[in-house]
Simulated scan of single mutants.
Amino acid sequence: MTSWMHEERLNAAFAVVERSGARSVLDLGCGDGDLFVRLAHAPAVTRLVGVDICATSLARLRHRLSVIPASAARIELRNGSMTQAHPALSGFDCAMLIETIEHIDPSQLAQLECAVFGKMQPRSVVITTPNAEFNTLLGVPAHRFRHPGHRFEWRRAQFRKWGDRVGTSFGYDVMYSDIAGCHPDLGGASQMAVFEQVR
Rank of each mutant, 00 (worst) to 15 (best):
S3V: 05
W4P: 00
M5L: 05
H6W: 12
L10N: 05
N11V: 15
N11Q: 13
F14M: 00
A15L: 06
V16K: 10
R19G: 13
S24M: 05
S24C: 09
S24V: 07
L26D: 07
D27Q: 03
D32C: 01
V37C: 11
A40H: 01
A40N: 05
A42M: 12
A42Q: 11
V45W: 10
T46A: 09
R47K: 14
L48K: 01
G50C: 04
G50R: 02
D52V: 08
D52L: 03
T56E: 14
T56C: 00
S57L: 12
L58C: 07
A59Q: 11
R60W: 11
L61P: 02
R62K: 13
H63D: 04
R64D: 05
L65T: 02
V67E: 03
V67D: 01
I68N: 00
P69F: 06
P69D: 08
A70G: 08
A70F: 08
A70T: 15
A70D: 08
S71V: 08
A73P: 05
A73Y: 13
A73D: 13
I75N: 01
I75F: 13
E76V: 12
L77C: 10
L77M: 11
R78A: 12
T83E: 11
T83N: 06
A85W: 04
H86V: 13
P87T: 08
L89C: 00
L89D: 05
G91Y: 03
F92Q: 00
F92P: 02
F92N: 00
F92L: 00
A95S: 06
A95Q: 03
M96V: 15
M96E: 03
L97Q: 01
L97I: 13
T100Q: 09
E102W: 12
E102V: 11
H103I: 09
Q108E: 14
E113D: 14
V116P: 02
F117N: 04
F117C: 04
Q121P: 01
Q121Y: 05
P122D: 10
R123N: 11
V125Y: 05
V126P: 05
I127Y: 04
T128K: 00
T129R: 02
P130Y: 11
E133N: 09
F134D: 02
T136I: 15
L137S: 02
P141C: 07
P141F: 12
A142S: 12
A142C: 02
H143M: 02
H143L: 04
R144S: 15
F145D: 00
H147R: 01
P148M: 04
W154V: 04
R155I: 07
R156V: 14
A157T: 13
R160T: 12
D164V: 07
R165D: 15
R165M: 02
G167N: 10
F170T: 03
F170Q: 00
F170Y: 15
D173S: 09
D173M: 05
D178Q: 06
I179Y: 07
G181P: 06
H183G: 07
P184M: 06
P184I: 05
P184E: 09
L186M: 07
L186T: 08
A189Q: 05
S190M: 05
S190I: 08
Q191K: 03
Q191M: 14
Q191A: 11
M192I: 14
M192L: 14
M192C: 06
A193M: 08
V198M: 11
V198I: 15
